[in-house]
């Protein structure tokens, strides 16, 4: 886990190579390059409008990059259906919660689990053994994930009736259910108070310890500093810094981006 950049990307799980994303005349991302290494928690930070969520959307196939490419686990992510990208092993949560409101917490998670299901319409109609086995395993795995996230007591409640904190956790559980190699969290602590934020960061570390690689978007710098291994800083669609939290904190460009002007911070 050396902090030095690795441009060749040999050991990278996901590699972003000079990605540019234009919407009309506006370049939301210009020539952004960085790697995510297996097993790390990478923070993607920047002031509002820096292009963090756009980067996310390029990585998960919601947008097609104007130029440049994203390579995940040896596969170039271009022109691949979004659901297939999820099956390759990238899962995400949403900045503004997007659960399936009428489904129960358990069912939300099972939908994620079923990203890798083999059984289809015929198997379900005839109750074939593969269908029965997957039903059973899906429920079991979903329940385990709800327990892991500490929200199993409301497994049978409709997602829309869950408290806000539960909904945020449920999103993470649903993403984990797709069995990802890379878990992308888009401001998972939004709307949390400081104590809750700290708890969530502990949970993210726990998720990493289970063997997942985590990409974390957050604009609260202090928060990111505590949990991430490395940080990439975006500002106006450009990468302005990359390194360990300590390095990034000391970087004058980062300080300028966050405070607007040079500051006396050392």
């Amino acid at each position: 886990m050396a902090p030095s950049p690795d441009p060749a990307g040999h050991d990278a799980l996901l590699s972003v190579q000079s990605v540019t994303m234009r919407f009309g005349g506006l370049a939301a991302l210009s020539e952004v390059t960085f790697d995510i290494r297996p097993g790390e928690i990478l923070g993607l930070i920047g002031p509002n409008g820096a292009g963090k969520t756009t980067m996310f959307n390029v990585m998960t196939g919601v947008y097609q990059a104007t130029s440049g490419e994203v390579t995940f686990d040896g596969t170039v992510l271009r022109g691949i259906d979004r659901y297939k990208i999820t099956r390759l092993g990238i899962a995400r949560t949403f900045q503004n919660i997007r659960l399936f409101p009428e489904m129960t917490a358990l069912e939300n998670v099972i939908v994620g689990y079923e990203a890798h299901s083999q059984s289809g319409v015929v198997a379900a109609m005839l109750h074939l053994p593969v269908h029965r086995r997957e039903e059973r395993e899906g429920r079991q795995r979903a329940m385990d994930l709800l327990r892991f996230m500490g929200i199993a007591d409301r497994a049978n409640d409709a997602a829309k009736n869950l408290p806000y904190g539960y909904q945020r956790r449920l999103e993470i559980a649903r993403a984990l259910a797709t069995n990802p190699k890379l878990l992308c969290l888009d401001e998972p602590a939004a709307g949390f108070n400081p104590a809750e934020k700290i708890e969530l960061m502990g949970l993210i570390r726990k998720i990493r310890d289970q063997g997942y690689t985590v990409l974390l978007i957050e604009h609260d710098m202090n928060l990111v500093m505590g949990v991430t291994d490395r940080i990439v800083v975006l500002d106006f669609g450009r990468k302005i810094a990359e390194g360990t939290p300590t390095e990034v904190r000391a970087n004058p460009a980062v300080i300028a981006a966050y405070l607007g002007v040079d500051s006396d911070a050392s």
Binding site: T60, Y83, T86, E114, A115, E134
Partner: peptide
Amino acid sequence: SRVGRAWTAIREDEDAAELMGV
């Protein structure tokens, strides 16, 4: 079954469903 859940997910939020591998 999985099929019914997929349909419900699509009805409630098609984009989220797609991004969850449906």
